[in-house]
Simulated scan of single mutants.
Amino acid sequence: MEASDFALLVLRLVLGLTMAAHGYNKFFGGGGIPGTAGWFDSIGMKPGLFHARVAASTELTAGLGLALGLLTPVPAAGFVALMLVAAWTVHRKNGFFIVKEGWEYNLILAVAAVAIAGIGAGRLSLDYLLFGTSGVYAFLHGWWGLLIAVVLGLAGGIGQLVIFFRPPAPAS
């Protein structure tokens, strides 16, 4: 085992389990799905119940998928879509820096996931275990992994915004 494989495992686990925790919290924390649905409605992502379920499910599955290194570009695309929607709907108006609730954190999470898709999940991953000796593995990292993560992620995020986002009217 190389140090880089261990480093990728640590990065995948921290990034993936952090995202999965956000999904878990949407399902079971505080107000659960009904509370999350009300929040989605309030930011203009309607219908809120649909988006609460989609966001919670995507955060949970993308997070676990990245942590496990399973079909890595696909969960990385989930990160891109999630973070694009969060940055646009919630954080954009606050500027860049997270200390003012800006979109800095969203950018870091999305780019880190895309970087993992480009580098590959490493030898300590399900991708390597299941596909390491097959031609499929070539599509799970490198330029293909990068392309899959970016294109699918942007398509998912932009599509969701175009179809569902209706900004609330400014308060008078």
Rank of each mutant, 00 (worst) to 15 (best):
L8Q: 11
R12A: 09
L9N: 10
G35Q: 05
S4G: 13
M19W: 06
G31E: 03
L9S: 10
L8D: 03
G35I: 04
G29S: 14
F27N: 01
T18E: 05
E2P: 05
R12W: 05
A21M: 13
A7I: 15
W39V: 05
A20G: 05
L17P: 07
K26C: 03
T18Y: 09
G38E: 14
F28Y: 14
G16W: 05
F28G: 09
L11Q: 10
F40W: 01
D5T: 13
T36H: 03
F28Q: 08
G16I: 12
A20W: 01
L9F: 13
P34V: 03
P34Y: 01
S4Q: 15
L17Q: 09
P34E: 08
W39H: 11
A20V: 04
G29R: 03
D5N: 15
N25W: 06
G32E: 03
T36A: 12
F27T: 01
A21G: 13
G29N: 07
I33L: 11
L11P: 09
N25A: 15
F28D: 08
Y24V: 09
G30M: 09
I33R: 00
L13H: 04
W39Q: 09
I33G: 00
F40E: 01
F28V: 12
R12F: 06
F40C: 06
G29I: 00
F27R: 01
T36K: 02
G35R: 06
E2G: 07
G32Y: 01
G30V: 03
F6H: 11
L9W: 07
A37Q: 03
T18D: 07
